[in-house]
Design a protein around this nucleic acid. Structure first.
Lengths: 326, 326
DNA sequence: CTGTTAGCGCATTCAT
DNA sequence: ATGAATGCGCTAACAG
């Protein structure tokens, strides 16, 4: 086993209280003895016992983060920057995967609370009140990312509505007469938290309507057929505006499968700016946002709540990445 | 704060020892009182205090895992399956990122040990003896993945040598006269753990030599120029055998930039079978291996070591995924 | 069968 | 400036 405060106390011929004062920079200690204690502690390779310390202080210096999965680059960035920031601030990061499953998300929350994390960063999928109350009653700092949870729970992210509004406007400005929005199913509105997807849809829809155009949406499982339908039955210049790069890549694959390439009168736009796009041609036009900052600020928000009880949102800027497909 | 054993004891009018016996299925307790205690514990929403329990037992029911990064799909799979398996076995998983940086890897190890994890799964990057001793002296179950560390430390993974030997043989069998191996720099052999890359190289080299051919390797930063060099100066049917799909995608991009497509007399083969390949055309020929199993078995190995002090390697099978590029 | 007690390692309060 | 004592919540060994 490793060396304890008690042993150091014995060796130095002082009490454990004094050792504690020396090692934790507390007042009321003779500089001489302090020096001596620190020296021998170092020689013995003393490391404070994490569990004992935490049990005693009630703090684990650990932040929990719950993400949908660990495959999507979106979460990779998030996890990476959150962990880096946490470590910089002398915290550990406890990563949990919800698989976008409501039950599993609850399990993740329980797991983290049971392990006494000091705060939780969460990309939420549940959305009922008992869930929200569970979070609030935990009395732990919480911050939501991706999907906003509740006006009383801080949020870090972009303005999804505005981002898609801008994208729609951009596509139209390039001369496309029809803009078809491709997104995940939105029918579960009341069953799970789809804040971001529905905000994006709203942005598209509002922009389209404000321009006097007709809103057209592909949101079903049989999107492949829908795409082919639009390809065949339209003589106009049409664009597929996708709520994520992955959808855009699928659309691109389908269009290529029909024409062998992407014709000039067919536009495609994504959302996320995944790094794998560098291997795709033609270069996809998409929307970028500072994910690294989201991770940083999520941790910052937790620390703000811990240290100053300061709760506030952080809204970051998005930008359109001009490629060859619009 | 939450309810403790002490409170339950008071409420039930028994001692804390009895509560402990009831709640932890220990022998020597009256079934009646046991039932009663369990009932009231449930009513009060009792949750054992993780830190106190761990401090007392010396077990945290937590496994640590150290990976290079969280972007590569290789690690995503690993993390996912490890976490799933851990949770199934009533363990938590503590994920740490080394950034493929030797210092940071050491920091990760210290961090995990400090937090008293019960075992560590590690994709190693250090390789000196003091590092190996640090791991051994930790007296914790360790299992290596990706890069083997030491014959005394269990390893879970594929036979990288054989996999690349097979790949080389496959390429040759398809009529390619020159096979150029594309891989990361191998010159750091004595400075860091590059077990897997060098095993793959060995597999390629042995196969090539056994066939009486000449070994040709691109392993430098200026790989782009090297590729173009080979493209221009060869009239034979040549293939680029890459030690990872990412290299293969880069090669593909270069070849496309020259010819606009992939000519018949130029082959490309990858290694990893990344899921993003589905968006790439032509379809890349590559090597697949069961990463989910690696994660499962890594956890299994840790548990084996904890419960039965059983140390053994697990070597998994690889397979060639036939695409359009060879 | 049940109660009591002594730790686990550290923080903290009260004496001295 | 230092020592002694108590508690965090739980487990485990011993006594009854």
């Amino acid at each position: 086993m490793s060396v304890t405060i008690k042993e150091i106390a014995n060796i130095c011929g002082v009490s454990r209280g004094t050792v504690d004062r020396a090692l934790n920079n507390r007042p009321n200690i003779n500089p001489e003895t302090k020096k001596y204690i620190i020296k021998t502690a170092k020689e013995l390779g003393y490391r404070p016992h994490f569990l004992a310390k935490s049990l005693s202080t009630g703090k684990t210096n650990t932040i929990g983060i719950i993400v949908f999965d660990v495959y999507n680059e979106y979460f990779s960035h998030l996890i990476h920057s959150s962990q880096q920031k946490s470590l910089d601030e002398n915290y550990g990061l406890n990563i949990m995967v919800s698989n976008k499953n409501k039950k599993q998300e609850l399990m993740c929350i329980d797991n983290l609370l049971e392990r006494n994390v000091d705060g939780i960063i969460i990309n939420s999928i549940n959305n009922n009140t008992s869930y929200i109350n569970k979070l609030k009653n935990s009395n732990k700092p919480i911050v939501s990312i991706g999907n906003r949870i509740d006006s009383h729970i801080p949020f870090v992210g972009i303005n999804d509505y505005q981002a898609m509004y801008d994208s729609t406007e951009y596509v139209i400005s390039k001369g496309y007469e029809d803009v078809i929005f491709v997104c995940p199913p939105l029918q579960y509105k009341n069953k799970q938290n789809i804040y971001a997807p529905s905000e994006r849809y709203r942005g598209y829809n509002d922009c389209i309507l404000s321009l006097g155009l007709k809103s057209k949406v592909i949101k079903d499982k049989d999107y492949v057929e829908k795409i082919h339908h639009y390809l065949k039955n339209s003589s106009k210049k049409i664009a597929f505006l996708c709520s994520s790069d992955i959808f855009a890549l699928n659309v691109m694959r389908e269009v290529k499968s029909v024409y062998g390439h992407i014709p000039n009168n067919i536009g495609i736009m994504g959302f996320d700016n995944l790094s794998m796009l560098q291997y795709i041609s033609p270069i996809l036009t998409t929307v970028s946002y500072p994910l690294t900052e989201v991770g940083n600020l999520a941790v910052t928000s937790i620390l703000n709540q811990i240290n100053e009880n300061k709760k506030n949102d952080y809204i970051l800027n998005h930008s359109i990445v001009v490629g060859e497909t619009i």
